[in-house]
Design a protein around this nucleic acid. Structure first.
Length: 866
RNA sequence: GGGCGCGUAGCUCAGUGGGAGAGCGCUCGCUUCACACGCGAGAGGUCGCAGGUUCGAAACCCGCCGCGCCCACCA
């Protein structure tokens, strides 16, 4: 045994993380039997940014659980993934290198990015060049991330790392997609789709968020049809039909007005037609139960398309399409006078529309208001309102709805089955299930998985071209499985020559890439190498737990459950452990845009990894937790305390062979057994925070009371009492070091190494039954009373000395303890230790109803105090 | 509009039927032979509000208020 003279936390991170890697302490042993494996579906962090304390927070939770299970004898499958595909990486590469992807540019093998990137005037590069830059940047980012995780002490098996853009992930994504296509679970459709006008790509419902934006409510008059048979009618003031809208620029795209079927006010209008102002388009007035008669005028304008409700009305009422919005978010040219664009006054419609054409939505809206004012069709002043507008979560302008051809995965028809899967899953904490069910119940359409982007997994299909060169989308040519992964923009389908690309009777590749969630939803399959390594996959799938934060229940958790349900007919994991967010001290969510993000490296350097982990592990499962360096200081104190308590307990211990005979030692061990049970139960329920709290609280009590009480006896030589305390210290230290190992992996490994062989992180988790076996038979209750009363009397003695402003070693001439007969009798068992710990020369007792202590300091002490 | 969570000392939080607690911060004291990255002591609270159940409620039930989040067809 080698206990250092001055134990220290300095340098533990580097020393032990290198040791763990060298010894393969966290290496997954695939030879382990299936029932012994504990598999974790680790969240792959997005590498196109920097890790912040929120990552440290939730990954620490997972690591504590991984370490606990490992100590429980499970063979832990704990891989790390890097989520490097998708828009965030594209954006970062554009800014970092000053380039933009232009698929029409030819590949340049000798391309070198500009030495001084100019974000304003990016260099156009080919798609292969762009992808190369993405790979280059993500690779260096991943090294930085791994270094941070190693410093934090994550017990990941780094030999099982994967990336979401890697060959393996591409092959598995494409294979799953082709399987869905084959079984009819995926389909392609030209339909109104949520669209980001800046990125110019489709986005999914799950990627939307509401943002409050100022807008204005405009009251607009639609004209009655010239034949006048709908004159009068509710909602019409001074003739015409009044609607309210926040999007007047879409009036040229109006295809109907709607009222609620029971709305008496609109009776005169329903069934007839009205004309749009400025454009003179005749649109029908219809009814639909979704119309709220209490909103606005009770009449609502349907446009193609202003929002998702418009899509519902358009579909259910069989309305025509009159689309004005282009993929770039500007109003496109439309053919006034031609079919679908008829007008009562075509030249006027053209003239009005010419004022809008080519403008952005916002510009067109402002101009439209001016036009409506001029024509007298704007009733009253626009009324400022604040309203929730849907944004792509990574976007800067509201999403629009644009008709385009996209791939979808069937989702809605599985709604009930998915609710059922959610109920099979064990949620920690349980109330998080509600978020999943809310989301599944609110699904409005199938999952749009295609994106008009570049750095992602391509769809493994081509399309034949007919004699005129038109694309035959309904006859996709899927890639053969053994060729996966393929990139249809460079690879050639079976039976075609490269020269036939884009030629009549030739082929074209699908130009799109998959939604990043379409790959991320397969992380259990990617990590477990589904279809690549059947033996491994059978060992780890379904996995034991998916840890993740609550904000991506509707995306990552939902989509992973969906894909597993579709491909395997079962859950991808049995448990999900949901972590909260880190909030800044003002309780606001940390985010880049708010500029309140804290990066972790300097925290690890200042407080040490164990201390930072302690703060993270103090955050309850699912609970948002404020960033608090104070807690890190507390964690550091705990780590230092463990060093010093271990040094005290282990230095110059008498030889083994002792038995636990002393009542105070036995009482402490009995209490420790209870703590072990509580920590174990808590960990089994994924409540790492409670496990830490129990272990920590008892450890501080152990240091402040038990160690102080037995200190004198510990230094005795060759007595039964010394032998007993020696045994108690070995047992308790061993338990404390292991109880705290999931939270403070570095300091526990350090103190463990002083006196044990092997890693504490592969040591068996403490067992309450083993501790109790040490105790055998005994007067447990009386022993526990002895410990309790001794500690309480010690507190009173300390109080007396503190109030007399005397050192703690000041002798006490006499202590009079009043208490019940039972407790006074118990105190006899611990009297010797108490007298030594308090420097008490004489202790008298007297029966009473409860504890009362008189402390009489020695004469010289009293004099000195005066 | 529906749902979930939270509301306990200045701060961060534990406590789910019987004694109102911990840490930090604050005040005071102590070079005590594991630890001054320490030790000891102290001050500090109408447990959001109002009602109910109960011998007894911070905890259980009902209502309300406030904060946060999720969901919604938010014109």
């Amino acid at each position: 045994m080698t206990v250092p003279e001055r134990p220290s936390l300095d340098g533990l991170e580097q020393r032990w993380s290198e040791h763990w890697e060298r010894e393969g302490v966290y290496r997954f042993d695939r030879a382990a039997p299936r029932e012994q494996v504990f598999a974790i579906d680790t969240p792959p962090p997005t590498v196109s940014g920097s890790l912040h304390v929120g990552h440290v927070f939730s990954y620490t939770h997972t690591d504590a659980i991984a370490r606990y299970r490992r100590m429980r004898g499970r063979e832990v499958f704990y891989p790390m993934g890097w989520d490097d595909n998708g828009l965030p990486t594209e954006r970062r590469v554009q800014n970092h290198f000053g380039v933009r992807c232009d698929p029409s540019v030819a590949y340049d093998p000798a391309f070198v990015p500009p030495s001084e990137p100019d974000a304003k005037e990016p260099v156009a590069v080919s798609r292969p060049n762009f992808v190369e830059l993405c790979l280059q940047l993500t690779e260096s980012d991943e090294q930085v991330f791994e270094a941070l995780w190693r410093t934090l002490g994550l017990s990941v098996d780094w030999s099982t790392t994967y990336t979401t853009i890697g060959t393996l992930a591409q092959r598995i994504s494409q294979r799953s997609f082709l399987g869905l296509l084959d079984r009819g679970g995926a389909y392609q459709l030209e339909a109104p789709t949520l669209w980001d006008v800046d990125f110019q790509t489709a986005v999914a419902q799950a990627e939307l968020e509401d943002r409050e934006r100022p807008g204005a409510m405009h009251r607009v008059r639609f004209h009655l049809s010239s034949d006048g048979d709908t004159a009068g009618g509710g909602g019409a003031e001074g003739g015409g039909a009044l609607i309210e809208t926040t999007r007047p620029e879409l009036i040229p795209a109006c295809v109907a007005l709607l009222a609620h079927p029971d709305d008496e006010r609109q009776r005169g209008l329903v069934g007839g037609e009205v004309q749009t102002p400025l454009f003179g388009t005749r649109v029908p007035v219809l009814t639909h139960p979704l119309v709220d008669p209490n909103k606005g005028t009770g009449l609502v304008m349907v446009c193609t398309f202003g929002d998702l409700t418009d899509v519902v009305w358009w579909r259910e009422l069989g309305l025509p399409v009159r689309s004005v919005l282009g993929a770039d978010g500007r109003l496109v040219e439309v053919p006034w006078g031609e079919p679908g664009w008829e007008s009562q006054d075509v030249p006027a419609a053209r003239a009005s529309y010419e004022e809008l054409r080519g403008r952005t939505v916002n510009q067109a809206r402002r101009r439209m208001v001016e036009l409506l004012e001029a024509s007298g069709d704007l009733v009253g002043e626009p009324e400022p309102v604040t309203r929730a507008v849907k944004f792509f979560e990574k976007g800067d302008r509201p999403v629009e709805i644009v008709t385009s051809r996209q791939w979808f995965i069937r989702t809605v028809e599985h709604r009930e089955a998915l609710i059922g899967r959610g109920r099979e899953l064990e949620w920690h904490p349980p109330y998080m299930r509600a978020r999943y069910e809310d989301w599944v119940n609110g699904l409005t359409g199938d999952w749009c998985v295609s994106r008009q982007r570049f750095f992602g997994v391509p769809f493994p299909v081509w399309y034949p071209l007919d004699a005129s060169g038109a694309v035959l989308y309904d006859r996709p040519i899927p890639a053969r499985e053994e060729r996966l992964p393929v990139d249809p923009s460079t690879d050639v389908p079976e039976g075609y020559e490269p020269e036939q690309r884009g030629e009549p009777h030739g082929f074209v590749g699908d130009p799109d890439v998959m939604d990043t969630w379409a790959t991320s939803s397969l992380t259990p399959q990617i990590a477990g190498r589904a279809g690549e390594d059947d033996d491994l996959f059978a060992k780890v799938f379904p996995m034991d737990v998916r840890p993740q934060a609550h904000d991506i229940i509707r995306t990552w958790l939902f989509s992973t459950v969906l894909r597993s349900h579709l491909d395997y007919g079962e859950l991808p994991w049995r448990n999900t452990a949901i972590s909260g967010w880190v909030l800044d001290p003002d309780r606001k969510k940390m985010s880049k845009s708010k500029g309140n993000v804290v990066t972790p490296m300097h925290l690890l350097e200042e407080y040490g990894a164990d201390a930072v982990r302690y703060w993270a592990a103090s955050g309850r499962p699912g609970a948002d937790t404020a960033f608090d360096p104070q807690q890190m200081k507390v964690g550091r104190r705990l780590a230092v305390k463990l060093l010093n308590a271990s040094k005290f307990a282990l230095s110059d211990l008498p030889a083994e062979g002792e038995r636990l005979t002393h009542p105070l030692d036995r009482a402490m061990i009995a209490r420790l057994a209870i703590v072990v049970e509580e920590a174990t139960t808590s960990f089994d329920e994924y409540d790492y925070a409670r496990a830490l709290e129990r272990a920590e609280t008892f450890f501080w009590w152990f240091c402040d009371f038990y160690l102080e009480l037995v200190k004198g006896r510990r230094y005795e030589t060759a007595t039964e009492g010394a032998a007993s305390v020696s045994r108690a210290l070995r047992l308790s230290l061993s338990v404390f070091q292991r109880l705290l190992a999931p939270f403070l992996p570095f300091v526990t490994e350090e103190v463990w190494s002083w006196w044990q062989s092997g890693s504490v992180h592969r040591a068996p988790w403490p067992d309450a039954r083993e501790l109790r076996a040490e105790l055998g038979e005994g007067a447990r209750a009386r022993e526990d009373d002895a410990l309790a009363v001794a500690a309480e009397v010690l507190t009173e003695v300390r109080k007396a000395k503190s109030q007399a402003r005397r050192p703690m070693r000041t002798p006490v001439a006499r202590v009079l303890v009043r208490d019940t007969a039972e407790r006074l009798s118990a105190l006899e068992l611990g009297l010797g230790d108490l007298l030594q710990a308090g420097s008490i020369e004489r202790l008298d007792s007297a029966e009473a109803d409860g504890l009362a202590v008189d402390v009489e300091l020695a004469e010289e002490a009293k004099e000195a105090a005066e």
